[in-house]
């Protein structure tokens, strides 16, 4: 049994008539960190949503820990140890901070309960000050801390962060990166989408670049950092 967590094979996804993903192959192993890069509209979010079953790919297969989850409902796929922090965060504004965390709590795939309510509180002291506030009362940075904390409450083996620091003030973004690095150290695999190329490539060891729904680069983050041409060509605006 390999240590493969999540795989996509030959994924083709459409929104109506528009063909978004053109046969994407993807894989992430236990403990690995992947920076998913590409300009807006290149299919990064669609790839994530396709693998989680939020959007249904028209062709291709999705494997979770080697088992076929292509047609599985989203909740079954993520129950195999995947936590998803979507673009725009997706907190529940009508629930308190405490409730946002409590509702998501569950043991991991191997029954591990390392991420308890108390540990999440210790990781995000700011949330502790806001514990009884409604989700709608939080600032953008606090919301992002809450969604990451909520994701950790599911004791995941893979954390997917889409647009991790979008719309956050630079200092708050730094704080988020610091926390993500902490989380990486615990051995949780991470897949991160963000505009800040130097931050994501320093946190993740692997990088993948999408252009128009195709993978144009899949290699080490070091290569991306050391090849300005690559960034200029595929990521520059």
């Amino acid at each position: 049994m390999s240590n493969m967590l999540l795989e996509a094979k030959e994924l083709h996804t459409y929104y109506g008539a528009s063909h978004i993903l053109h046969g994407i192959d993807f894989h992430i192993r236990q403990g690995e960190g992947i920076a998913l890069m590409g300009r807006n509209g290149m299919g990064k979010t669609t790839l994530i949503k396709s693998m989680l079953g939020i959007v249904r790919p028209r062709h291709g297969r999705i494997l979770v820990r080697g088992d076929d989850f292509t047609r599985a409902p989203t909740y079954r796929t993520v129950q195999r140890g995947i936590a998803y922090v979507p673009e725009g965060r997706g907190i529940f504004p009508n629930l308190s901070v405490r409730e946002n965390l409590q509702m998501a709590a569950r043991a991991g795939v191997d029954g591990q309960r390392e991420w308890t309510f108390d540990r999440v509180m210790a990781t995000f002291p700011r949330l502790g000050e806001r514990i009884n506030n409604g989700g709608w009362q939080l600032s953008g940075g606090e919301q992002q801390m809450l969604t990451i904390g909520r994701a950790l409450m599911t004791n995941p083996d893979l954390l997917i962060l889409d647009e991790a620091t979008e719309g956050l003030a630079p200092l708050i973004a730094l704080e988020i990166w610091r926390i993500v690095k902490e989380i990486r150290k615990t051995g949780i695999a991470t897949m991160i989408v963000d505009k800040n190329h130097s931050a994501v490539t320093s946190i993740c060891d692997r990088a993948m670049i999408l252009v128009k729904g195709e993978v144009v680069f899949d290699g080490s983050s070091e290569q991306v950092r050391e090849d300005p041409g690559l960034i200029q060509k595929h990521l520059g605006v």
């Binding site: 909740y75 993520v78 997706g90 009508n94 909520r150």
Partner: peptide, 20 residues
Amino acid sequence: MMIRAGNHDRVMVEALGINI
């Protein structure tokens, strides 16, 4: 909590591993 959360965003509830 799940019912109230589902009132706001059912996709996100399901993405947390809950059978909505």
